[in-house]
Computed example of a mutant assay.
Amino acid sequence: MKALDQTLALAWRSLVQVRRNPWELGDYSIQPILFLVLFLFVFGGAIAGSPENYLAFVLPGVIVMNMLFVTVYVGHGLNTDLTRGVFDRFRALPIPRWAPLAGRILADVVKQLLCIALLLVVGFLLGFRLETSWAHLLAMVALVLTFAVAFSWVMVLVGVIARDPEHVQLFGFTALFPVTFVSSAFVPVDTMPVWLQGFVQANPVSLLADAARGLMNAEGPALEPALWSLAWALAIALVFAPLSVYALNRRLARG
């Protein structure tokens, strides 16, 4: 219980820091709304015939895309603590080694939840209507948050090995853009070249977007892509969590 209290305190520290960084707060609020509005009104007519028809398709995709981009700030904040010597102070405190990492990821879950809620509110204001049930919607939120927790370990590793916070953002966004856009998050897979469709269908971003779309709109199956998304999340966590802890211990040992 003491370790849990320490983790919650460190998570609260990460959340309070957002108030001092208005640009980061904009990335959690303005950026996802901007992406949704741009995709909806710029591409909606070309892809679905009208923005109204495209909204039900693109909203789950934007939620998934924004979830991945928000995880970059886990690595960014961690690297900031490392480069500024904050982790040296953590090592001197009687807290578990994993508490700072767990607190950072827990804070990210709260931020992810706020982003999802904000996008859903904007989506409803733009005309989105839930075609399944509120239980399915909550299942979608839980699925996206579960994947966010797993994928955060990837950004923890990037945050540990990067030289400075700017390199974390550069690498994170550069790597995420092609993975996100070469998926079914924004366009149907059957509109892509045949040689590309196999990769898109196996892309975890596509699987998560399809699962979210099925849970929100009843468009296509939801159970199979949801199970594959959970399998991807488990695999990512099993690989990158130990690597992140190992890389962090090596960096702290080097001083």
Rank of each mutant, 00 (worst) to 15 (best):
D81Q: 14
T7C: 02
R84G: 13
F90H: 03
Q169N: 15
R213M: 07
A226E: 13
L8G: 00
A237G: 15
L68C: 12
L170C: 00
D164P: 09
V86M: 01
L101S: 04
L234Q: 10
N53E: 11
G220N: 14
S14N: 09
Q112S: 11
A211C: 13
F186V: 11
Q112C: 10
L78I: 03
V168E: 01
G44D: 15
A3W: 02
V110L: 13
V70Q: 10
I33Y: 06
E24C: 00
S244C: 13
A237L: 15
L252E: 10
E224F: 15
N53R: 13
A209S: 15
V205H: 12
A46G: 04
M140Q: 09
L126F: 09
R251W: 10
G26V: 08
P204Y: 08
I161D: 05
G127F: 06
S29F: 06
A135T: 12
V122S: 11
G26D: 13
A46F: 06
G61Q: 03
L130C: 08
F199Q: 00
A102Y: 04
L208S: 15
L4G: 04
L207C: 12
Q201S: 14
L157Q: 05
F124T: 04
P94N: 05
E131A: 15
M140D: 13
L126Y: 10
L234R: 11
Q31K: 07
P178I: 00
T174P: 06
T191F: 06
L10I: 05
V58T: 14
A142R: 07
S50N: 05
A9G: 01
N217H: 02
A139I: 11
F57W: 11
D164S: 12
L138G: 08
T146P: 08
L82R: 14
I63G: 03
V16D: 08
A253C: 00
G103H: 03
T132F: 10
P188R: 01
M1S: 03
A3T: 07
Q201Y: 09
F128M: 05
N203R: 10
D81F: 09
A46D: 07
P51T: 04
S14D: 12
P60G: 01
V200G: 11
I116N: 04
